[in-house]
Each structure stands twice: as C-alpha cells, then as structure tokens.
Amino acid sequence: MSDPQHSNGWRRFWHRGTWWKALLLVVGYWLVYQLIGLGTSALFHDVIDVADPLSSPASIFFGVALPILLSGLLLIVLAASLGWARGLFRRESLPGRRWMWLAVLLVLIPIVLRLIGTRWSAYAVATVLAILALGLCVGFAEELLTRGFVVNILRSGGYGERAVLVLSASYFAIMHAGNALQGQPLSTVLGTVVYTFGFGALMYLSLRVTGRLVWAILLHAATDPTTILATGGIDAHNAATAGTSGLIGVAGIFSFVYVAFALVAIFLVTNRTKVAPVAPATSD
C-alpha cells in the first residue's frame, strides 16, 4: 500500500506545518464550536438558562458542555482523517527537564486550595457532577487542539521548541479572546487572555515532562471545574455560592504566577528543532 503522506493531499497539507496552518485550525475550531453552540442552544432552549447556565445540571450539560464535547469529537474525526488519532496520544519523543515539574506543581496547588475552600453545601451532587463533566470536556477538547494538533503541526514545520511553547500558548489565549464577542467586559477578556497564555505555557511544560497528552488533559480538566465551583461562576464571581475567600484568594494569585513562570520558561526551554512530529499512518 502506498504511503498516504505522499498520496493524500489533505494529509500532506497538514503534515507540512506552518504557524498559519496551526492558527487556521484554532480559528476554524472556534468558529465550528460557536456554530455548534448556536445549534444546541436552539435544540435544547427549554432546559438552558441563558442568564445562569450553571442553574441546573441540564443547563450545564446542554448549554455549556455539549458544544465543547461535540467539538472535541470532531477533532478526533479530524485526527483520524490525518492518521494522527493514535500518534497524538503517544509518548513524547522529546523528554522534559526536571525543572518542568514545577509547572505541574503550580497547577496542582491552586486546585487543592480550591477543593478545600469550595462551599460544597451550596451545590447539589448532580450539579457538581455536571460541572466536573464540563471540565473533562473542556480539558479534552482544548488540550487536544492546542497541545495536540498545534504542537504537532508546528513541530512538523521544523519550529524550535521555544517557538512551539510561545505559539501554542498564544493560540490558546487567542481562542479565549473570542469571549469579547459574547458580551464579556473588555477588562475581563484581557485578563483571561493573559491568564490563558500563562496557563497554556504550563500545559506545554506538563506535556513535555509527563510525556503524554492525557496528563495535560487531566490537569486542565481539574482546573476549570474547581475554579467554577470555588468562585460560583464561569469567568465570574458569585457571592451566593463562592467558597472561603482566603483560600480562593490565594489560589487566584497563581494566575499571576503562571504568567511570570511562563515568561521565565521561554528562556529556559532548550530550542531544539529536531523533534519527531506525529506522522500520518501508513494505513487506516
């Protein structure tokens, strides 16, 4: 059987990585996610609370989680069409450095603080489970896109790891800039963009040092729901359900730590260019 890398134009296009192809994929994902969100909102409008999406488990799932889940599943279909479905989840060919474990630790500390500080009595068990499921959907889709596809596309184009770190974190941040189109205040959007750049850089370092994409997915999947449960909202603070202010405040400081650590990491990452990207499979 002939090698699909040389016989399939679709695969050849994505295997020859450039920065703009990675950005094109991120923008395309965001647009598809928005379209899916419009569709699910129309289909399940009876159970979705637009004013307070976290008001019920059904509203959480159909209003927030389902569009992300479907977008993530489309990424799996895309990966299969490129012959990358298994390769994206394989062990990293480039080993991490010991200092990169600090990234994992910095992500875990606020997760633990939020777990302790959350006012669990404010939530029904079903609501907690729905928010945890939402976190898993977000972690899966966003990490598969940015630390899976984007990292692989950039590496296949011969970009050094320093550029891979910066670009993958930047595209992750740009994706969240779209919140401005949903009516969020500009100050909130700018804060989110800066935070997501730092967090994205830590996820890249977590991918490197753990060796597998699944660990970045799980770390991301634990971050978002614990933040929502602790603060009582999505990118917002709800005094009615927010947890212990002291612990939540300390956890919030790590947002600034992420950005500072990310800036330092840019100079610490060895700028290697000879990293084996995920290659198209030779058969389906």
Rank of each mutant, 00 (worst) to 15 (best):
T196D: 03
D46F: 07
M175G: 10
G139L: 08
A180S: 12
P57N: 01
T40G: 08
F62Y: 05
N179S: 13
L132Q: 09
M1R: 12
T223N: 15
A279H: 11
I36K: 12
L190W: 00
L25M: 11
T223C: 14
L66C: 05
G249N: 04
L31N: 11
G249Q: 06
A180L: 13
L202S: 03
L25G: 02
Y159N: 13
E142R: 12
L78P: 08
W19S: 09
A239G: 07
T226Q: 05
S206G: 08
I48D: 03
I266S: 13
L181C: 04
M175K: 15
R11D: 02
D224S: 12
W84L: 00
S56T: 09
W10L: 11
L105I: 14
L23P: 10
G252P: 02
G39M: 11
A130R: 03
L115C: 11
T210R: 10
G178W: 11
T118N: 09
N8K: 04
L145M: 13
G211I: 08
H45M: 09
A124D: 15
G117C: 01
K21S: 00
L247Y: 00
L24Q: 08
F89E: 09
S121K: 03
A42W: 07
H45N: 14
F140W: 14
V209K: 01
W14V: 10
A126W: 05
S206V: 13
S255V: 12
S59Q: 07
Y33P: 00
G72V: 07
